[in-house]
Every structure is written in C-alpha cells, then in structure tokens.
Amino acid sequence: MSDTAQSSMTISDDVMITINEMHKWYGDFHVLKNINLSVNHGERIVICGPSGSGKSTLIRCINRLEEHQRGDIIVDGTTLTNDLKNIEQIRREVGMVFQHFNLFPHLTVMENCTLAPIWVRKMPKAEAEAVAMKYLERVKIPDQAFKYPGQLSGGQQQRVAIARSLCMNPKIMLFDEPTSALDPEMIKEVLDVMIELAHEGMTMICVTHEMGFAKTVANRVIFMDGGEIIEQNPPSEFFENPQNERTKLFLSQILAH
C-alpha cells in the first residue's frame, strides 16, 4: 500500500467472495484447476494471463454464467448451487461488464438502464429513470439517454453498459476485458469511469491487460495460466518482483510493446 491513491480507498475485513478448491471442466477439458480466492469488501482485483488461460471462465463462474463442477463459490454469504433462487439472488448483487458491451440494440440507452431495476428490483418507473439518469451523468453521457446503442461510439456504449450494471446497485462489479474491443482514444474514457468507481469503494474484479490501470487501482494482481492461479500479489510486488518464471515471461511480453 505505497500509493496514496490506494490508501484513500478502504478495504474492510468482511469477505465478499470466497472460492474454495473450485474446478471446472468443459466436457473432458479441465479449464479451471483448484481455484482458491478470497475477495474482501472494497477490494479491487485485476486478473491477467495469456489467452485461453481461463480468466473469462473464472469470473463468469462467479455469477453462474458458467457452472462449476467441484468446490464452492460463496458470494456475499450465498453459496452458488443449482437452485435458481440462489442464482438470481447473486445475480442481483453482481454486475457484469462484457468485452463486447452486449447492450440491447432494440432498446434506448434509458430503457437498457431501467429494464432490470423495474422488472427485477420492482422499482417504480419514474424512480428507475431518475437512478438511470444519475448513473448516466456519472459516466458522462446523459445527453445520449434517448438514443439507441447502434448510434453510439464503442467507448460510449461501454460506458452505458457500466451505467446499466450500476443501476442495479450491485455490491460487486465484474469486468471482462472491458477495453479490449475499443480504439485507443476510447480506452481512456472507459478506464476513467472504472477508476472513479474504484475510488468510491466498489468491490471489483477486472480481467484486463491494461497494466497502467492495474498499477493505479488494484490491490492485488492475479496471474493465471493453464487454468490455474499462478501468482497473486499487490501490484508493486507483482510488477517489480515477479516470483514465477511464467509470470516473468508474460510480463516481459506484455510490457515489451
């Protein structure tokens, strides 16, 4: 905790996510091997690793977009089982932002943001719209509220996607390579929103190769390879003094360009 920005962000001791000896297979293919991970309230975790190492699969297990076969995942006190009630309960508390935005193209930005609050949280429409406007202002695109996603730039779409998740008032946000489908000049506008979110104390797990982002906001950087967590450390330690050979190789490749 050397960085001043980090010390302003509080982490409490209550555990938000616990993953215990978790394994996952796609058919015969062992994608995730013995994953152990604990995330505290307010913690910001960056996951990196080579393509195909299982990063997406891991965070998609946390909100049950993928099913795991062994071990436990406990999110905010609820254990993930096949019980639909549990799954829906957890999905209400966990927001997710995708690489390709996945906005609903047939709905306006405003409708994208209010749909889940109205139909899942049972919020009155006027209130949901007020909340949506608040978050759209936060991601700096209130003036686009009545456009359709197809009329926005990639960076704007991704910011709408973040606002859409925030409208559900989640306790945890998952990001799966949120900037890797964007042009360079749009990456910053999305990262800025994410940094702001981090400063507000949101619990975040973020798959990204934006190492600058990892250095400024992460408490912990996790390196995955071949379906395993190879190494996890605070960013200063992780970048300056990587322990594992594979981590060193990966870092040399990613920091080279």
């Binding site: 209400r92 906005l103 609903f104 889940a116």
Partner: peptide, 10 residues
C-alpha cells in the same frame, strides 16, 4: 444478449 440479461438478474 442472453448472458447480459442473465447477468442483470432477469
């Protein structure tokens, strides 16, 4: 599309 809907709790 379905995944985004699932992730929102629908």
């Amino acid at each position: 599309q379905g995944e985004a809907a699932d992730a929102l709790g629908l």
